[in-house]
Write a protein that binds this DNA or RNA. Structure first.
Length: 556
RNA sequence: GCGCCCGUAGCUCAGUUGGAUAGAGCAGCUGCCUUCUAAGCAGCGGGUCGGGGGUUCGACUCCCUCCGGGCGUACCA
């Protein structure tokens, strides 16, 4: 739809090229106007040309439209409006042709291929394996999943990665906490670390430790077996995380271990590499990374005075490793509370000679968990919080994902469990799924109404010109907007645009459904044309939902 | 103090990389099921886009400033 108009305009500009002596064609936009009164597509090219040509936009627009009118049966009307917009209204023929393409066998019509096979890595969730996933991780997971699906559908080669922080202090603390609970189960003295993990799940892990390993650690000091218990507990926790994500419908291609970055000396090598180029230096017995050279506000410690690596040290190695793997772009999805981290990681890329534009961070804002309007108290310290699994068990994976994707990721989100679980109209996912189910219901009804079993592919041969009600054309027009929304969503990395579009599409279909009967028994030709239209709606709904990672049920 | 994000209808949020008359859902009110699923539809009301300046043909969008909310500012992870 956009390309059609763009081509028309460019052709006209070419015809006028000699007269206007334009070197470069200036950037111009072709958009779906806000108001229907302004046609199906609007173009601002005349306004963009006004300055270089030193002519009024309307005069320029007249010349362009003069050439468009005669050339094509694509448009029903091309008008000049406002300060110099050129408004295009498509012909019925164009709409029928487009509908045919949606029903056609080329899936890239709905999914403009902007990826060109480029390799993109999306890293998300990456929760510490020291406790269960909470609702905030769920939001990151939903976004990462949808974005990955979206980019993949747009022709990128996508790799989904979970970075496992299985090294360092937090995992050590988990081990000590589990060991303490284990001792408790054995009736021994308990030495729970001061800042250890106090959640109930730690007791569960300890019980499993006892079940699986028996009394093997009885009487030992934490120094003797802490590492072993920590590694084991970390593995258990990671399995649980993996299962919770699976239940949520999220799957990763790779799980990258932080610990490995140490055992294979990647951290050490990355730092000495940087030291050679003086990007790492020693100051007051600590080693510092010169991130201020690349836009960070100050340099950052990578090796503390006591010889320990900071968390940032492995992050340097990790991001270097990612880039060395040859991706064309890497996208990190982080909690918004880590936003201060962006400049220093960006500095890492630059220090290794990579273009910083290859790296993008999507920040996901906090989720406020409510129940019936009341905030749910969460204290991570006391280990008292609602897990993602509990939410998913209660409200369902589809609803949870859909709600997360009804907001842009960097806005705060109130998630009310009570509202979400009530399968009420307040719940937008059902609204969209219901439209899909209704269409399927029509096709189920068809045989009983004397249409026989409908082979959908045969609907491609139906007489689409019978779709001549205003609502028919409106419906097709909405469907044709999908590729534009898809393209914009992929370009901006904003899957929520798909979500909003699907709600609009569902709304238009519900209206259509109420007003016009599809299975018109006295006019099979019309009925088949409408079935073709309904099928197209189904196809688009299913396509959009699949990108969000949400099911499209055939019955509800 | 400095830095980043946010401020749009009573509530929750969209607003297409500067476009035309700022939208949707929910909540409120009024109607619609003998016909393909009422998890639906039709209609009504609701706004100094936080305030004030600036940039230009044009600003919710960009710049400055102030107010208000969140987060970050570790040799923590």
């Amino acid at each position: 739809m956009r390309e059609t108009v763009r081509k028309s305009v460019l052709a006209a500009l070419e015809d006028l090229g000699d007269e206007w002596a334009l070197g470069e064609v200036p950037a111009f936009e072709v958009e779906v106007p806000r108001s229907d009164a302004h046609g199906d597509m609007a173009c601002n090219v005349a306004m963009q040309l006004a300055r270089p040509l030193r002519q009024s936009p309307r005069k320029i627009a007249e010349r362009i439209t003069g050439l468009l009118g005669q050339s094509s049966d694509l448009y029903a009307a091309v008008e000049i409006a406002g300060p110099g917009f050129i408004n295009f209204r498509f012909s019925s023929a164009f709409w029928y042709h487009s509908l045919g393409r949606i029903l056609g066998e080329d899936p890239t019509f709905l999914r403009p291929q902007t990826g060109g096979g480029k390799r993109v890595q999306v890293e998300f969730v990456s929760a510490n394996p020291t406790g269960p996933l909470h609702i905030g991780h769920g939001r990151g997971a939903a976004l990462g999943l949808a974005l990955s699906n979206l980019l993949e559908a747009a022709g990128y080669q996508v790799e989904r990665e979970f970075y496992v922080n299985d090294a360092g202090r937090q995992v050590r603390l988990l081990g000590l906490s589990v060991f303490a609970r284990y001792q408790e189960l054995l009736g021994e003295r308990v030495s729970m670390p001061e800042d250890g993990y106090h959640g109930e799940y730690v007791r569960d892990i300890a019980q499993r430790l006892l079940d699986e390993k028996g009394e093997r650690y009885r009487g030992l000091e934490s120094e003797e077996c802490g590492q072993e218990v920590a590694d084991w507990a970390c593995g258990v926790m990671l399995d649980e995380i993996r299962m919770d994500l699976e239940a949520f419908g999220v799957r990763f291609d790779t799980w990258k271990s932080e610990k490995e970055l140490y055992t294979n000396n990647a951290v050490q090598e990355a730092l000495s590499n940087l030291r050679k180029s003086d990007r790492v230096y020693t100051h007051e017995a600590a080693s510092w990374f010169r991130s201020s050279l690349f836009g960070d506000e100050k340099d950052r410690v990578v090796v503390k005075a006591n010889g320990e690596f900071t968390y940032f040290a492995s992050d340097i190695a990790y991001h270097k490793d990612k880039l060395d793997r040859g991706y064309d772009a890497i996208i990190d999805i982080w909690g918004a509370d880590h936003h201060g981290y962006v400049p220093r990681v960006s500095a890492v890329l630059q220090a290794f000679g990579y273009d910083k534009s290859k790296f993008q961070v999507l920040l996901v804002q906090i989720v406020n968990l409510l129940r019936g309007g009341e905030p749910v108290k969460m204290s991570k310290r006391a280990g008292d919080f609602i897990t993602l699994k509990e939410v998913v068990d209660e409200v369902g994976a589809d609803t949870t994902k859909f709600i997360f994707l009804t907001r842009r990721s960097d806005s705060h989100l109130d998630f009310d469990i009570e509202v979400a679980r009530e399968q009420s109209p307040e719940n937008p996912v059902y609204y969209v799924q219901y439209a899909h189910a209704r269409i399927n219901s029509i096709f189920r009804q068809a045989p009983a109404k004397g249409f026989g079993k409908i082979e959908k592919a045969s609907l491609r041969e139906s007489n689409l010109t019978r779709l001549n009600e205003a609502e028919d054309i409106g419906m097709i027009r909405m469907l044709c907007r999908y590729p534009l929304v898809f393209e914009d969503a992929a370009r901006t990395h904003e899957p929520h645009r798909i979500t909003f579009y699907l709600q609009e599409l569902a709304s238009l279909f519900h209206t259509y459904y109420t007003k016009h009967r599809v299975l018109v028994e006295e006019d099979h030709e019309l009925a088949r044309a409408r079935m073709a239209l309904a099928w197209a709606v189904e196809v688009v709904l299913k396509d959009g939902l699949s990108i969000l990672g949400v099911h499209a049920p055939e019955q509800m």
